[in-house]
Amino acid sequence: MADTTNRFGFVAFAETWNGRLAMMGFVIGLATEILTGQGILAQIGLG
């Protein structure tokens, strides 16, 4: 029997992973700023 659960759109599964990836991105961005001493805009040449 095939798995017929929907994993796209505004469903709990997709929203859970979206939240997890957003939290990881925030922590990685914060760690990069701490390690380099530059903000994200300065790192990409806009600041």
Rank of each mutant, 00 (worst) to 15 (best):
Met24Gly: 14
Thr36Ser: 14
Gly9Gln: 04
Ala22Asn: 08
Gly25Trp: 03
Ile44Ala: 02
Ile34Thr: 13
Asn6Cys: 05
Phe10Asn: 10
Gly19His: 05
Thr32Phe: 02
Ala14Ile: 00
Ala2Asn: 11
Gln43Lys: 05
Gly37Asp: 01
Phe26Asn: 15
Gly9Phe: 07
Met23Phe: 02
Gly37Gln: 01
Phe10Ala: 08
Gln38Cys: 09
Gly45Gln: 05
Asn18Lys: 13
Thr16Ile: 12
Leu30Gln: 06
Met23Ser: 06
Ala12Gly: 04
Gly29Glu: 11
Gly37Glu: 01
Met1Glu: 09
Ala2Lys: 12
Gly25Asp: 13
Leu21Gln: 14
Gly45Ile: 04
Thr16Cys: 07
Thr4Cys: 07
Gly9Trp: 07
Gly39Asp: 04
Gly47Cys: 01
Thr32Val: 12
Glu15Thr: 12
Gly39Tyr: 01
Met1Lys: 07
Ile34Gly: 05
Thr36Leu: 08
Ile34His: 03
Ala2Ser: 09
Ala31Val: 05
Trp17Phe: 14
Met24Trp: 13
Gly19Leu: 07
Ile34Lys: 05
Ile40Val: 15
Gly19Ala: 14
Ala31Met: 10
Gln43Arg: 11
Met23Asp: 06
Leu30Trp: 02
Ala22Ser: 11
Gly47Tyr: 00
Leu21Tyr: 11
Asp3Asn: 14
Phe10Thr: 02
Leu41Lys: 01
Leu46Gln: 10
Leu41Gln: 06
Leu46Pro: 00
Phe10Tyr: 04
Val27Pro: 03
Gly9Pro: 02
Phe10Trp: 04
Ile34Glu: 12
Gly19Arg: 13
Ala12Lys: 07
Ile28Ser: 15
Met23Arg: 08
Leu30Ile: 02
Glu15Pro: 04
Thr16Glu: 12
Asn6Glu: 11
Ala14Cys: 03
Ala42His: 05
Val11Ser: 04
Arg20Leu: 13
Thr32Glu: 12
Gly37Arg: 00
Glu15Met: 15
Ala2Thr: 09
Ile34Val: 15
Glu33Thr: 04
Thr36Trp: 00
Gly37Tyr: 00
Met23Lys: 09
Gly9Cys: 09
Met1Ser: 09
Gly25Pro: 02
Thr16Val: 08
Asp3Gly: 07
Thr5Leu: 14
Leu35Gly: 15
Thr5His: 13
Ile28Pro: 08
Val27Thr: 10
Thr32Tyr: 00
Ile28Val: 15
Met23Gln: 07
Gly39Phe: 00
Ala42Tyr: 02
Thr16Pro: 01
Phe13Ile: 08
Gly25Glu: 09
Ile44Arg: 03
Ile44Gly: 02
Phe13Met: 09
Thr4Tyr: 10
Gly9Lys: 05
Met24Ala: 15
Ala12His: 02
Leu21Met: 14
Gly9Glu: 06
Gly45Leu: 08
Gly45Ser: 08
Phe10Met: 09
Asn18Gly: 10
Asn18His: 09
Met24Asn: 15
Gly25Thr: 07
Gly45Trp: 03
Ala12Gln: 04
Leu21Trp: 12
Ile40Tyr: 11
Gly37Thr: 00
Val11Arg: 06
Ala22Gly: 08
Asp3Ile: 11
Asn18Pro: 00
Asn18Tyr: 05
Met23Trp: 00
Gly45Tyr: 03
Thr4Trp: 10
Phe8Gly: 13
Ala42Lys: 11
Asn6Lys: 07
Arg7Leu: 12
Ala12Asn: 04
Gly9Tyr: 04
Leu21Arg: 14
Gly9Ile: 11
